[in-house]
Design a protein around this nucleic acid. Sequence first.
DNA 1: AATATCACG
DNA 2: ACGTACGTGATATTT
Length: 887
Amino acid sequence: MSKKIVLIDGHSILNRAFYALPVLTNSEGLYTNGVLGFLNILFKILDEEKPDYLTIAFDVHQPTFRHEMYAEYKGTRKGMPEELREQVPLLKEVLQAMKISILEKGGYEADDILGTLAVKAEKEGYQVSLVSGDRDLLQLATEAIRIRIPKTKKGGTEIENYNTNDVVETYGVTPIEFIDMKALMGDTSDNIPGVPGIGEKTASKIISTFGSIENAYEHIEEVMPNKARESMINNREQAYLSKVLATIKTDCELDYRVEEADYQDIYNEEAYNYFKRLELKSLLKRFDGMSLSNTKSSEKNETKFEVITEKKKAQETFDEAVRTSLKAAVGFYLVTEGDVLGLALSYGENTCLFLCGEESEDLAAQDIAAGLGRLFGAGSSFATIHLKEQLPYLPEGTEEKISDMAIGSYLLNPLQSSYECDDIARDYLKLTLPSQSEILGKGSYKEFLKLKKEESTAFFCNHAYTALKAMPFILEELKLKGMDSLYKTIEMPLVYTLYDMEQRGIKVNREELKEYGDKLTVGIDRLEKEIYELSGEEFNINSPKQLGVILFEKLQLPNGKKTKTGYSTSADVLEKLQAEYPIVGKILEYRQLTKLKSTYADGLAVYIGTDGRIHGKFHQTIAATGRISSTEPNLQNIPIRMELGREIRKVFIPEEGYVFLDADYSQIELRVLAHMSGDERLIEAYKQNEDIHRITASLVFHTPFEEVTSEQRRSAKAVNFGIVYGISSFGLGQGLNISKKEAEDYINRYFDTYPGVKAFLDDLVSEGKKEGYVTTLYGRRRPIPELASSNFMTRSFGERVAMNSPIQGTAADIIKIAMIRVNEKLKALKLRSRLLLQIHDELLIEASKDEIEEVRKLLQEEMQHAADLLVALEVDVNEGPNWYEAK
DNA sequence: AATATCACG
DNA sequence: ACGTACGTGATATTT
């Protein structure tokens, strides 16, 4: 293997890092977010590549014509903010302390320095990684030079990699041709004029056809389309100039020798002191082994993974795993894609991967199934990740034996955006693993196993390995935080419930859905004509930008108020104009219809499977409050509020011989509030078993119950909602369309009426501020970092979250308990009726006609008694031949 | 990839 | 004075 060198574009990465992270300072007031982000990326790359050499290049800020133009251009928008500027020297100091080779030279840009170094290193036989945030460098990609572009995705950084082929795949041109392509399309931020009228698509087409600008001019009469050809003819000079500007120099005069760029001693005392002073706490653990040895300690225990494709060897390994499972936990991960492709196992000190199917002639999926049967028969403690996806291939009866580390780490911190293996390894094992998209990209597991055997097997083994190693820490932490019961009795059993629901799916009448869509199309066409008529021209009504111009400029409608990047055309703005301007009503109606058509009529149709059912997915680790979410498609936002939309529920139907039973909690969140706050009057109000909004209105407005007007009731209802959302006078005013002052008055009256609620909400906020998190009745936590913010808006948001999360979260806990019990009970009683959907406070059951009464009772019972609160939970059950009728 | 809008609880 | 209701996901348009 040839030696590796990593070259980093210092300014570009620092810049990316700075904008990716929220502002962060140490206690001295030094800004550190850019430095922190830079170091995170640096360490990620070092851990991943373990290169032999490393250099970081900076351009010196003053010189070159090209650069001045750039500064000026940026100056017109926003210069480098002070917070970032001061981190440049700071970063250099830190890197110097780490004894990392830094290269900067006046007169050259970082691109040119990097280009020169990369080409030089390649010539000398090195494998080169060029790290930058800038796509310009793609022109340098070769087999030996890999361009790496870190992207700041939610939840961490991911790195896009480009060798020659990757550039071709992404842009349709070779790296060399990329220069010409860029020269044609131009780049304002680099001050490359390009050829007017040619964008990315056209440029790619021209260059992939002709190979270069020069050749394109030689055959200029063949260049298509006409517009591009003419523009090229008229801008010949500019095209050639652009090419010069776009070309990165590879022949800078640099006094640089690769051998001097080795980095031996990055974890030294001076560096440690810098990290400590900057309070880069998450990075400090990297210095743990410092005093023991100063040499390359990043060469940690490289776990060895074994790949098994022989039946005999597999049997023996299963034997060993079974023996281990009798006294210790075993980590596993089933690799599936339609079928089982393999199984990763981790036990004791051994981690291995069985491959079956196409990857092994000897080992079949049945062999793995048999092995799994033996293993789960013997052992009692297993750890994995994403259990729900593996359940189709696991034996029965694994409940209570398997832990899912993604579920556990979600409970420990529900704010993360993903709970993949690499996230968990980073958080609990301080291990840097490549993410799926980094090594796999967008390909399938099958391709992945074929093309990148070594990386893919390591990837799968890491799942089993990480599950085994991280699970004890996660379980311990859950216990410490009082969430072990939540985990064991709610979240893990729910995995199986959701799996059942996904498998069952819900039947949809395809023909009727089609008819519904056609009906919408008729209405859309009619409205479209009418709108064009009224506005005097044709335009794209779906474009808020174009619509804004038509309404507020051409037609001069008043109130072009709400802006951000133009006029707001949102429903609440338009509704206020509706009465006076007929076109506005048409637009609102048009919006409604197109929404129904695209999202529901057309959108749902593509998910109907061969069995005539839609098998949506339910996600358990998304919502910060503990709710479940639904995708592909989202079955939790099927229209109901408007009649026309509601109609679509008629296409959701039960199987022959079945009916739908729909059960929903009545005001579960308000009841939870009554319980948690212990407010006596609110509890009393519920005991009366009367319309709660009317009671509230009666109390708040000091009006006899019978005399409450519908207006008063509406206001009281809005206040009740507001309370649950984390009340604010502004928000309530918005919701009720009244002034902030009036809203404030309502809120005060409400709190006078229910003083216990006020005290409870105040307590939640102060608890959140003190502890950094709030909890539900079942111990589920929601951290609220916003409460510590000095920014008023951010902090206010945190306060509302502190008031809302325990209520919404407790309601979520309760219905989860109900779901598990309902599902279990139906199965235990051997009933054919089954749970299909959960919509936050509602369960939809497909009930066999001969079981209706039994199931109705069961639903009532289980849902009502899922929690024992100070106020009774009320459940309404409805029956119907489709979802529309059952609600 | 981000923004605007709107569907639900 | 600040400028917002809480929690999601899908689609179309624009950058």
